[in-house]
Design a binder for these strands. Structure first.
Lengths: 145, 145
DNA sequence: GAATGTATGTTAGAGCTCTAATGCATGCAA
DNA sequence: TTGCATGCATTAGAGCTCTAACATACATTC
């Protein structure tokens, strides 16, 4: 018997929590009519104007082709603009448009509401502990690869 | 200032850990040439032979159309077979083939290895606490919707 | 100057995921 | 019997995600 019951697998509980997070954030982003990955990109773009798509991908924890897909959809909706870099001709600088900033702020208010509700479920001590334990998960799992 | 720093967001850490989990499980499933969702479906199918696709979807935490996609790929590879239910003609009973069972066992050994490594990063007390905290996350987030 | 290395951007292809809508079958109730 | 509710299966369409591969541009080194 080499197998393992689902409830014993930490991964099951991690996945379950992540799924709930995604669903909640998705609902929170709905008024702004953006997806969660789109919101994540917009949020980082507000903080780092002119960033390259590859760097943005690293910040968002996705691969460059994935970010490419997300940015394409954002550009078609006019929420971002991409202009060639003055020196490095191969690099495209990405920036929020005015509408993009408005949409980002709308989505952010929903996302922050979710995060505050989540944080409110824990004491300060529990929150720190949870973050520490999650960090250890990521560390161990990255090493596994 | 209604926004919130990424490091303060529990969701960021949750997502980070989940991403690492997915990457590790993906690597673990690679020798069996199945994806993580495919492995999850195969694992449940081994335990509940003849289950309907909708019920399987609920167990795996995805929607029926999603499970449909996964099962279609598994069927094309000959890892499962689907036969009409004797009474409820609308229902398809899904079962592992012999090859499906072999592949599932290969993938499972890799997945269990990941889970054991993950569990080994914590004391028994920490593990229980982490699971409890993750459960509270899911609860609060589901209520948010 | 030429070769190598590093980083960016893009395309192609496979697969997962969702919502929305539709069709079908079964069972229950008026 | 007719109608309604429930549940299963499927299709359509949009979007995210990855790996693999390729092209381009800049920087460093020989």
């Amino acid at each position: 018997m080499t197998s393992m019951a689902p409830e014993e697998r930490i991964g099951s509980h991690l996945k379950r929590a992540e799924q709930a997070l995604l669903a909640a954030k998705n609902a929170a982003c709905k008024p702004a009519a953006v997806t969660v990955p789109q919101y994540a990109a917009l949020l980082w773009l507000a903080e780092k104007p002119g960033i390259s798509a590859a760097a943005l991908a690293r910040l968002c924890g996705v691969t460059p082709p994935t970010m490419n897909t997300v940015l394409k959809n954002l550009q078609e909706r006019g929420l971002i603009e991409r202009t060639p870099h003055e020196w490095h001709r191969n690099v495209l600088e990405t920036r929020l448009t005015d509408e993009g900033r408005t949409v980002m702020e709308l989505a952010d208010s929903g996302a922050v509401r979710v995060e505050r509700a989540l944080a409110a479920a824990f004491t300060g001590e529990e929150r720190e502990l949870l973050i520490e334990l999650l960090g250890r998960c990521a560390e161990v799992l990255d090493a596994q690869r």
